[in-house]
Structures are given as C-alpha cells and as structure tokens.
Amino acid sequence: MSTIVLLALTGIGLAGLYFLVASGLTLIFGLMRVLNFAHGAFLLLGGYCAWLLGAQLMDAAGNVSNAGFLAMLIAALAAGAVIGTLTELVLIRPLYRREFAQVLVTVGLGLVVGALVMGIWGGDPRNFPAPPWTHGIVRILGANVPASRFLLIGVALLVLVALVAFLRHTRYGLIVRAGVENRTMVSALGIDVRRAFTLVFALGGALAGLSGALAGVYFGAVSPGLGSMLLIDAFIVVVIGGLGSITGSALAALAVGLLQQFANYYFTGIGDLAIVLLLAVVLLVRPRGMLGAST
C-alpha cells in the first residue's frame, strides 16, 4: 500500500512537471501550428537563471530561504517569458505563414541555447539550491514521500487553475481559444491575432522557465541535458492529450507520469518504453490524441 502511495504521488509530481512544460507547448501549437523545439531551451534558461540567483542567495549548506526561493522561481518565470517573447518577435514573426520554417527556426534556437549553456556552465549537473523543507519527507498513508513532489503538484494545480481561468474569463483567453479553432476567422473579425501569438509565446516561455526551476528542485540539479529530456516527454504528453488542448495535456500528463512510475517499479526500468508505447497506441487509434481539436 505504502509503495503504491509513494509511486502514485511521485507519478503525480512528475505529471505536474510534464504538465507545466506541455501546457505552453500545446498553447503555442494550438494557436500557431508550430511545434516549438526551443521549448527545452526556454526551460534550460529558466533553470539556470534560478540556479544563478540561488547560488548568490544560498548559505554554506546550499539552502535558501523561502523568500529567496520565491525570488528564484520568479526569476525563472521572467527569464522564460523574456526569451519566449523575443523568440516570437525576432524569429517567428518574420516567417509568418511559413509554418515549417518556423518549426525549423525553433530547432536552430534549441541547438544554439543548448550549446551556449554547455559552453558557459559546462556539461556537469549543478546542484540546485532550495529551502530545506523541499528535501524533507512527508509521511502519508505509511509512505515516505519527498516533499518536493507536493511542491510540484501544488504549482501545477495552481497553473492549471490560472490557465483555465485565463482562457475562460479574459479577452485574450477568448482570442486564444477561438484562434485554436480557426485563427483566420479571428483576424476576419478585426482582431490582430499576432498579438495573441506573442502572448502565447511569452506565456509558454514563462511556464517552461518555471518548470526549469522546479525540475532543478525535483532532480536536485540542473544540467544541459534537462531541456531536451523534458522536451521529449512533454511532446509525448502534448500529442497524447491532443495538440492545443490544456485539459487534454493535464490528463495526459497524469497518465504519462503515473504509467512511467508504476512501469518503472513493477517492470524495472521499463517506464520510458511504456510511455512511448502509449503514445504510439494512442496515435494509431486516435491520430489527434485524446482531446485533440478536430481541425
């Protein structure tokens, strides 16, 4: 029982991380039909920004205060938002209506940022400073669950609620939802959809940056490989959930996180294979994913 609880909570925590990366990807794809390969780079920059700040704020034992930690998360969020916005304005916008070129340019940006991080901070993992409580253990139903899992679950839930509220109740949310269905018609109502493009890139970048910092907490370190590793997982989540669907991504993240943890435990180390198979099966049965838009 305690094993199941531990696996489930760890799986949900991982799902939270996947969701944070995937939600931005899915919004960008839904609106712009661009699979953003630079998303891993956004994440990486967020993670390293938080780490840089944390290295300034931490004490000798490698701990930071709660306020310092909050500052680190905000720095990650801001770094992601800035790089996301710049990407859209400088690289994506000049390639308007050339969606394939847009995808390729994000591939290039991913390479460049990955190489830059490697060049500046090296390939070794850097220990990620965090408040002591994140390293603690919570006893729940007989299981010893690392507290960082709850942090991830909490942040992911918060983001999910905020995103849904944004999409439901704000004008830009309305534009994004409509644009996911048919962005030509949105401009045919006299709306400059390109502003919404910048917005989703900023938002997606911010969420990716935040997940970079949270990944640092979850894994205890940041390394240049983090970006591409989580990017592939997020792709899988986005595609299973249906490109463009936030709730789809949330559900798919949950399925993927849980499947991965349980498969890893009960069939030693088969977790990655299991989620890849899940992806293949979902795509072959429903090529648009679980909750994919019909266009």
Partner: peptide, 17 residues
C-alpha cells in the same frame, strides 16, 4: 565560438531566415 553547435545553429537559423 568554441561550441560547434552554437555556430552551426546560428548558421542554420540565418539560412532559414
């Protein structure tokens, strides 16, 4: 400049643009 992938990535993006 000491990162080949940085240089290649930049060239690649310039080619696309």
């Amino acid at each position: 400049l000491s990162q080949p992938l940085f240089v290649l990535g930049i060239v690649f993006m310039l080619v696309i643009l």
